[in-house]
Amino acid sequence: MSGEDWVFWISGSFAVIGALGLVFSRKAVHSALWVAFTMINLAVLYIANSAPFLGMVQIIVYTGAVMMLFLFVLMVVGVDSSDSLIETLRGQRISAIVLGLGLAVLLVVGVGNGLVNSATVGLVEANSIDGGNVEGIARLIFTDYLIAFEATSALLITAALGAMVLAHRERWLPRATQQELSKGRFLSGSHPGNLPTPGVYARHNAVDTPALLPDGSISEESIPRPLQARGDVRAVDHHEVNEIKEVDSQ
């Protein structure tokens, strides 16, 4: 095996692992990290396949920009039931897997079969004409593909505008004044002040630790809701609570 083969087998395996991780991760953030991992490996494969420019773009645009955008939106959207891996549509999962396998087999058979006997020309010559891969791609983009390139610039601007339009929220009512906000807060009958802070103990000092009420029970409100939704609430050791009570009583 040549060095190139080593690169392929290692990076290829990593890419597949990352893809599987994307599909099977319970949490969306993990999925995003797995896909970023896949994309970095793909960048390596691009570079190994004589496409250093694309490899760089892959890292910068995908891993750097797109995936970070994903993560950002994930943070905005937060966690909800959609992260659950329990399938709600009957037969969906099994059919999806069968079809996916069929797709893979057919693609491998169909496309791979077409390539089996073809000789690899290599890009050494093509890259050398303009003095390098980047120069070669640049020449193509600004000559043969100029119109397409200009069209993509229009597309990008349109997409940016579209995103702004979609994300823009029209204000139907006048902005509430501080007085109105305050009134609303008190009239609603809910807890007007700060929520209780998480528990701070000698051995635990973290936001996932619930505060204890005077009778030793847990205050649900002291834990941020996303943590509750994720189930990341740290259990309170009642043995410790009892110890604390004893100390207090002495």
């Binding site: 597949v16 896949t38 959609s82 059919s95």
Partner: peptide, 23 residues
Amino acid sequence: VVILSAILFSIGAVGVLVRRNAI
């Protein structure tokens, strides 16, 4: 490489079909 590409593509397709989180 093309086979790898096909495998990744299929995994992506299956992922589209089985995951519910739009992101």
